[in-house]
Simulated assay, not measured.
Amino acid sequence: MPASLSNTTTPLKVHRNIYPNSFRVISSICEVNMKRYILHLIFTLMVCTPLLAAEPLGTPDPDDMILYDDEENTELEVELGKMLFFDTRLSVNGQQSCATCHNPDLGFSDGMAKGVGTKNNPLGRNTPHIYNMAWSSVLMWDGREPTLEQQALGPIASGQEMMLPLDELERRLNAVAGYRRLFKQAYDVDKITRDEIARAIAAFERTIVIDDTPFDRYLAGDTQAMSQDAIKGLALFKGKGNCTQCHDGPNFTDDSFHSLGIKDNDPGRAAITGDKQFLGAFKTPGLRNTELTAPYMHDGSLTSLMDVVKFYNQGGGGAKHTSNLVKPLNLTAKEERQLVAFLKSLTQPFEVDVPKIP
């Protein structure tokens, strides 16, 4: 099976899987009875046919957000989570916060090809943005975390990133009277635990929402919201560019995994599943505010949106594990520019006031 196949199960969205079309149908039905033949045929059709067409592009619906216990976050939770997001106490040496790598001024990324840990040690992948993660049921480049709450603790405890054991995280925050008071107000707990810490950070991250771009206003009926080049780029995005095979839905991601053929030694999703069919496959990133999140790809190897479009136009990186969805597009130079114009129409300024840390 190709590397683009996803076996991730989510409660809200069925991933479109791409199945091989090379199954053999029994060459001579005289060798089997009709019942077996019919069952075999049904199975073949089920396996060889994509489960779902591309989800229509649109504006994200707040009602579709994935919430902790299906409960809306309170303003206090959000403010508490913002404090934690900017607090360098969450790293072992006090040198790095969540916002160090997910900098609001850099598209909630860090502007570098690959991230660095709290001891200035190099990391292996580009820092992904965190826009509209409230709708995602699979997180990180390799999809190893299923919820925002679990994702929030991962980098803190990672031996390569913030390097702070979670026991020490709890001890540090419990030693701060201001945090004890705020956690008591938000969660009615006398002792701060990692569970409440994760919930608070995730509550803040759910507010990082892009849903009022020129594209959204165009969809809502404002025909002047997008330039003519962007409108033509939208048609290319859905048509000749074949972009919606992966970048579909309101957040422009199928939440699945595909290999673009980048030639490096990163196993991608395969390291999580242990399945070679996922070799070199990475999560499809959402495209809202993508103009602000350069450089691009899991390895940060492409520096501009035009570089990205040209990469796809040539048919990807050419590695053996390239998804069968990635093929040369035969776009003209003008069409490349129009696609970039459309991608830039997905941009919306998003500012965050740095909170006072207890």
Rank of each mutant, 00 (worst) to 15 (best):
L234Q: 10
F278M: 01
D264R: 10
R36D: 15
N103Y: 04
I38Q: 14
F350I: 09
D299G: 14
E149G: 12
P250M: 06
R217D: 07
A230T: 02
N242M: 12
I201T: 13
K82H: 03
Y296G: 08
G318V: 01
H247G: 03
D266L: 15
S301E: 08
T332A: 08
V78F: 09
F350Y: 14
D307H: 11
D216E: 05
D195H: 13
F282W: 14
G221K: 12
S6H: 04
G233S: 11
T273C: 06
L12K: 13
M34P: 00
K82R: 15
S97T: 05
S304C: 05
T118W: 05
S227A: 08
P295T: 09
P122W: 07
L260T: 13
V32G: 03
D188R: 15
L329P: 09
M34A: 13
T9N: 11
F108E: 04
L106E: 08
I201S: 06
Q151K: 07
L80Y: 04
H247T: 01
F108T: 01
I130K: 03
Y68N: 09
T49H: 09
P358E: 00
K240R: 14
F342D: 05
K344N: 09
Q277G: 00
P214A: 07
V309L: 03
T290W: 09
E77F: 11
Y37A: 14
L106F: 06
V352R: 03
K13D: 11
P62K: 07
G241D: 07
F278K: 05
S22V: 07
Q338F: 01
S22G: 06
A230L: 04
R16D: 01
D110R: 06
A177H: 04
